[in-house]
Write a protein that binds this DNA or RNA. Structure first.
Lengths: 212, 212
DNA sequence: GTTAACTTGCACAGGTGTGTGCATGTTTCT
DNA sequence: AGAAACATGCACACACCTGTGCAAGTTAAC
């Protein structure tokens, strides 16, 4: 039998696939219900060509969520220290570094039926945050006027909000990150002077390194 | 000439109009792009009947925004005291009382072309908040690690988030309001113990009265 | 009880988005 | 250079939403 030699996939096709993913990440983060056509055009392709790379709108979104989940997993795998407040600041700074993904996941989770998969993507970060909160409350370095679950959710909602919105407040990227981190620390119960002191004591939070 | 006696409008029609407004406020707050049919059904009417009360989808939304703006105006007209921190807490508590409107305006502003009218509706509250922030910063009772405009926006975004989300965190309504108020105070720079003390010193914040 | 106001259901036109089939070019691999 | 992979534009069916016209039924006003 003559074997029908399966030719290797073309290289430009792979590049186009990446273009679509990038364009979709950017476009859907702004407007989660942007049309497929808008995404395709943003990627410099036709709508018809996009369907050659992805079965479905759902398939495209699912893949975006998957890569987001991957980055969140990486963040949640970072080691923690003895200082819950510093860990919280670090977590906020790292989420800032993954701002695009945060924005996408938040936008998609809000309005689509992808709630389940986005929740799964966020799960490891949620676990980490809850642990940080518990540790901080145990030694009174984080607020104890609400239970750990509630505080964790408050911080989560706040982080989501500030990470996605802070860039609109100021021109400087460094400022925006610093603002987001300090706002999260404030939600943790620290006074603004404590937060400022903590950020000063850990200059790595504002370095490029923590943004990856 | 015989005057064609214009009969008075029927009373059930007026009631239905209110039903539509209430249903729209609730439905559109959850999903700003819910269909007219969904709104009409939620009000117990047919889609066709709704068009007897409102010209347009836009007309319906515009009226919702208008009544929201009215409540915000009322909030912004309340007198202020000498203590910026207490004023901030009071503002948060009052916004909590208008949670439905906050939620609606936020949802509609996000995704529609009503950005201009929602911004106008929020303007008086924004003015008040900015003034509170300026006064608080002047006497160092609110954080001074960011300029007034930025801090005001941070607080605004946080207030929006917590007012609309806090109800999902806890079963108790009183708890949710208290949490929202304390979170806002934290964003203002207070430590959680200061916030707690402040709330305790002003029990009216948690009374029914402040919810109107 | 009669009339006018109101509601309902249906049908229709127009708009936008999705996903597919197909013929026609263009680019990459070998 | 030739074949397979890929992109494009068009047409189509389907679905959902909007806003309107109209006939028939129901309800409140007088």
């Amino acid at each position: 039998m003559t074997q029908p030699t399966p030719r290797a996939p073309r290289s430009d096709a792979r590049a186009n696939r990446e273009s679509i993913l990038a364009a979709a990440r950017e476009t859907l983060a702004k407007d989660p219900r942007a049309s497929i056509d808008a995404v395709a055009r943003a990627a410099g392709l036709s709508r018809r060509a996009l369907y050659g790379h992805f079965e479905d709108r759902a398939a495209l979104v699912t893949e975006l969520i998957a890569t987001g989940a991957q980055r969140f997993n990486a963040i949640a795998d970072e080691p923690m220290t003895a200082d819950a407040r510093a860990d919280l600041a670090r977590l906020a700074a790292r989420l800032w570094g993954a701002a695009e993904d945060v924005q996408l996941i938040a936008a998609v989770a809000l309005d689509d039926e992808h709630v389940a998969s986005t929740a799964a993507a966020l799960a490891p970060v949620r676990r980490m945050l809850l642990e940080i909160v518990r540790r901080g409350q145990a030694v009174q370095t984080l607020r104890t006027d609400m239970d750990a679950e509630t505080l964790a959710r408050i911080i989560e909602e706040g982080a989501r909000t500030f990470v996605t919105r802070a860039p609109m407040f100021t021109a400087s990227v460094t400022d925006a990150r610093s603002i987001a981190v300090r706002a999260v620390l404030s939600l943790g119960g620290l006074s603004w002077r404590e937060a400022e002191e903590l950020v000063r004591a850990h200059p790595d939070l504002l370095a490029k390194e923590s943004a990856r």
